[in-house]
């Protein structure tokens, strides 16, 4: 075949299993990174809220990590964890902290003091106060931060191809090596669609989990 079209239905049809595999790896890496990043960020945000003096070092470190280009990050992590998905996930988790920790902290700080007092008066305290009152009220800000993180994590996952685990990035790399346009374009479009889907899912989660916001507006 001499033609090198950008769109090739034959490719999508005959290589669908490979495409699905790449897509699955992409989703697994993204979901794992955002989930771990989120749990870690909630923890860090709580630590910063408890000990305000730690704000500067926590934000400073996460900003420095965020500034390190992904190629350097994956390159350095590769020497520790090798050619594994772990390398990619650890890198993406480190990137997610900058926005997530700030998002969670801003959300928690935005909970009105009288609401918190009312909850304490009703006997809420500790973890129950956090999970039943504070986190639900902080959810809009937290989800906004999660959306930014999820979308950029989907895009950054492609660079995991440096260590052989880039999900759709693998297909882009293959297409580059074999000069196969349709493969590159298919993978790129899927990647953008995946980011869009992640964004929509998070919007839906927010709507479903905060019914009181709809009632008001």
């Amino acid at each position: 075949m001499v033609r090198n079209d950008w769109i090739c239905p034959d490719y999508v049809e005959t290589r669908s299993d490979l495409i699905v595999d790449a897509l699955r790896e992409h989703v697994v890496i993204t979901v794992a990174s955002v989930t771990i990043g989120f749990v870690l960020s909630v923890f860090l945000a709580l630590v910063v809220r408890r000990w305000r003096r730690l704000a500067a070092p926590v934000f400073g470190t996460s900003t420095v990590l965020y500034t390190i280009p992904s190629l350097a990050m994956f390159g350095l992590l590769f020497t520790i964890t090798g050619l594994t998905t772990t390398t990619v996930i650890v890198g993406l988790v480190l990137y997610s902290l900058t926005i997530l920790v700030r998002g969670v902290l801003t959300g928690l700080d935005g909970v009105p003091a009288d609401v918190r007092e009312a909850a304490v008066g009703m006997g809420y305290n500790g973890l129950r106060l956090l999970f039943r009152v504070e986190l639900p009220l902080a959810l809009p800000t937290i989800v906004a931060a999660l959306r930014v993180t999820a979308v950029s994590t989907v895009a950054l996952t492609t660079l995991g191809m440096l260590v052989g685990h880039g999900g759709l990035g693998q297909l882009i790399k293959q297409g580059l090596d074999s000069n196969f346009r349709a493969e590159v374009l298919t993978a790129s479009v899927l990647c953008v669609l995946l980011a869009l889907l992640a964004d929509l899912v998070l919007v839906a989660v927010l709507r479903l989990s905060t019914p009181w916001r709809r009632a008001v507006s």
Binding site: A155, M161, I172, K173, V184, A187, A195, L196, D199
Partner: peptide, 12 residues
């Protein structure tokens, strides 16, 4: 801009 992978655009 965040949703589009830099690597993909570069290769495209």
């Amino acid at each position: 801009g965040r949703a589009v992978p830099t690597f993909a655009v570069m290769v495209l």
